[in-house]
Design a protein around this nucleic acid. Structure first.
Length: 356
DNA sequence: CTAGGGTTAG
């Protein structure tokens, strides 16, 4: 238990030290090993997690279903495929619990393998395990991810028919599903259905709604939700501000978006690369490539780490405006930052030395 | 000790 507390508090070194001490004790080591594997995943150190797992096998400690749940969910969260792991678990003859199946479903959802998600659900039903709220929510998330809102909606009615009550996560996932497929009207209607069903919106839902109204072009409503979120005692964070600023940018309200950006900074909320890209993309599309480049410089100086897209937007923006020299300069900073792109480079040079 | 939801662009 203490290992878990230390790892959640991001005190991985203390957790390691405690684990070394526990290993010297004459105790049952299964739970400490499980906790240490989980701790390394929490610390985003999947290799160390696997080392502990192999150590555990070498010590003759039998992993249980929880061990494998931790390995599966940790692998999924760290972007590793879980196919082989899932097969290995089954070949080891570990009895899979409902939770184990749900962990596997979530991991497959994260990697976007909708076919595998469906297959695992069929398999769990064959094992006479009834899909529960978690299973249904994960399945809806899988359809949301693969942009199949009709299928997601079908699952929603199946779950209600199966007597599983939707919760706030179900509604959040459905609203996000519609939003991703640009079905703004349906997203808003789902929010209304959620309220009618006495599901009190929380910070996540409000944050999502700011984005939904923004994408629907309803900036006033986005702002209204933003204020409601604050009125109900939540603190807007970088995600909320990104949605709000993006809502204004979509409508060409550049001055307003700048105002919210300064307000955000005054509020002590630091910009990140998502917001940077959102803003420079809007500036570039409005033909304000210089403003975009200035913002990139300013935020980089503040410690925001631009990615490939940040530079690519600027280079493309200058190219589009016919400013080849600026495009060249921007490409130079892009490769300096370690993002080389041969195709882009040759496209710029073709423009700078036109064929006779 | 283990499972779910929010942001940009494309």
């Amino acid at each position: 238990m203490v290992l878990g507390i230390l790892s959640r508090a991001r005190l991985i070194e203390d957790a390691e030290e405690l684990f070394q001490w526990i290993k010297l004790q004459d105790w049952d080591k299964l739970r400490p090993y499980n906790a240490m594997i989980a701790a390394y995943y929490q610390a985003k150190r999947p290799k160390d997690a696997w080392d502990v797992y192999y150590q555990m096998l070498a010590e003759g400690i039998d992993p249980d279903d929880v061990t494998y749940d931790i390995l599966v969910s940790g692998s999924g969260k760290n972007g590793y495929p879980i196919d082989r792991l899932f097969l290995e678990i089954k070949s080891r003859g570990v009895a899979l619990t409902l939770r184990s199946y749900n962990v596997v479903i979530c991991a497959f959802t994260k990697e976007g393998s909708i076919d595998k998600v469906e297959e695992v659900i069929r398999e769990m039903i064959r094992q006479e395990l009834r899909p529960d709220l978690f299973s249904f929510n994960a399945l809806i998330a899988a359809y949301a991810m693969s942009r199949k809102p009709e299928r997601g909606l079908q699952v929603f009615s199946n779950m209600k028919a199966a007597g599983v009550l939707p919760d706030i996560v179900t509604y959040t996932t459905l609203i996000q599903m519609f939003s991703r497929s640009a079905m703004h009207k349906e997203a808003i209607e789902m929010f209304e259905e959620m309220v009618v069903n006495k599901c009190q919106p929380d910070f996540f839902v409000y944050s999502l709604l700011v984005s939904v109204y923004g994408k629907a072009g309803l900036v006033a409503d986005a702002l209204l939700i933003f204020h409601r979120l604050q009125l109900e005692g939540h603190r807007p964070n970088i995600v909320t501000y990104t949605s709000l600023i993006s809502a204004h940018l979509h409508k060409g309200l550049l001055e307003e978006s700048r105002k919210h950006f300064s307000q955000m900074e005054a509020y002590g909320c630091r910009a990140d690369v998502h917001l940077l890209n959102t803003m420079i993309d809007a500036y570039a599309k409005a033909g304000m490539v210089n403003d975009a480049a200035n913002l990139l410089h300013r935020l980089t100086a503040q410690g925001v780490c631009p990615n490939r897209a940040s530079y690519a937007i600027i280079v493309e923006g200058f190219l589009h405006a016919g400013h080849v020299d600026e495009a060249l300069a921007a490409y130079a900073s892009m490769s300096e930052a370690g993002f080389k792109d041969e195709k882009m480079s040759s496209r710029i040079s073709r423009r700078s030395s036109p064929r006779r």
